[in-house]
Design a protein around this nucleic acid. Sequence first.
DNA 1: ATGTGGCCAGAGAGGCCGATT
DNA 2: AATCGGCCTCTCTGGCCACAT
Lengths: 265, 265
Amino acid sequence: MNQDYRNLTDDEHEAVEKQSLRMIVQALQEYSREAKQIFDNTKAPSKTEVIVLAEDLVQYALEVAETYPINRRYAGFIDYKRIRWLPTPYGLLPQALLVDAKASTENNRETLQQSQLPMNADFISKDVHVTMNAGVEPHLELPDTMNGPLHAVTTSLFVHFYYRDISTTQAPYRELKSIYALAIPHARFKPRYNPDPTTTFFGQGKHSSARDEDPRIRVYFTRLMAMCPWRLQCLNFNGNPYAEPMWRDGLGPTGTITPFAYLGR
Amino acid sequence: MNQDYRNLTDDEHEAVEKQSLRMIVQALQEYSREAKQIFDNTKAPSKTEVIVLAEDLVQYALEVAETYPINRRYAGFIDYKRIRWLPTPYGLLPQALLVDAKASTENNRETLQQSQLPMNADFISKDVHVTMNAGVEPHLELPDTMNGPLHAVTTSLFVHFYYRDISTTQAPYRELKSIYALAIPHARFKPRYNPDPTTTFFGQGKHSSARDEDPRIRVYFTRLMAMCPWRLQCLNFNGNPYAEPMWRDGLGPTGTITPFAYLGR
DNA sequence: ATGTGGCCAGAGAGGCCGATT
DNA sequence: AATCGGCCTCTCTGGCCACAT
């Protein structure tokens, strides 16, 4: 009756991240119709509106797709966060699910704040070795009445709303083109995903060094997918109310895409 | 079997706002211990942290104190919003509950964006008559399958975290001194609360006209309380883990304060 | 054309401070 | 000392644009 993720093998832990991502992809798909409707047609008081829309939509999509909650909360910059019991074949695991919403007109990379980085990163930019330390804890310690503290594994997911602006005066104001969902590997997978600065999906951040802003970092979609196809999922809108229910899995640079069944909302 | 708030008398509608506020005050009181614990001890990556804390705490406090949900969502800048059925003696009413969280080192006024203003406002500032139109709709129209649309009354509440900074390096980082809860009157009460520019709880906004920022507006606590005591509630921390469970009601410039029972969390 | 870097832009949300009374 | 007005600061979040392959 294992309750500690640290007892899992690497492959088991990867499977835990995979099933976590699989569930939010299902949730996003089921909510995709309303998500697109709201995203495209909500009037914009300001251009910042898309940020708020993305956050709200992630909440609406995911809050109905939760697992057994653990009575523990904390506040902070992460958009959607839940401490919960996650059922897995390897045990019922305490998990700290962290999901961040992003809105973007790009669809090839994601910018992370240091506080959103789950693993120490090493990469090369302009021939120099750049480093950034993880800002996300590997787990959250939950004081346990019985046998010492419980460790809730932290799982870092990102939901990326890829869109373009259409109009500022009338609906539709925007076109939500697709919803990407990414699972960034836990710190423990450093040897697997970033053993050295040249082997990585990380890239130079978006910050301006000139104005010495807080450093950020980027995750490149193609490279992440090449290292582990299922970690990059994409739900595409092709003219239908709902997105295309596709799940990426398997091997190879782009993996294999297969449709999945879903119930709409 | 009334389902339309427009059939209520003014007094009945006031009572609806009052019971809505009463419920969130109960919820805030029950959550006050954890709220203070999180507010005071959460490390601050930046000074903006308090804003996020306030938003999260409002969500945590209120999400467990909801009424029968209506299956309808919309996204936007309001921190906490729920469309729901509110049971009242005057009928089961569709309601759009809007709650905004504010963090402040002041405790005498609240700044509202125009989009948070539920009634057209008139007031005098520096001898000139200033005006601001409501940015909140009186109700949300819900397409109804049976007998035409349903109108969800909009109820505008604010939760104000009054605090001061303590330290930037070690816990406690802040001191949450009290939690205020305000109910801003619905547009229909304009004749009651702001019949003319000199009779009002509104005041000049915080925006800089010089840099022509979007106009904002202020609500003055004392004046709001003088016009209707129960619309300004305050839960004070006096050294105890939980705030003092006090509810303001009755008449007079400050009304009457009485304690209420609560179950902690 | 793409993949990368990175400079800037805007807009929330409040901290504060200076007049007034 | 309070009550008001209002200027300005900070910092989030991405739009974009310029190179480099």
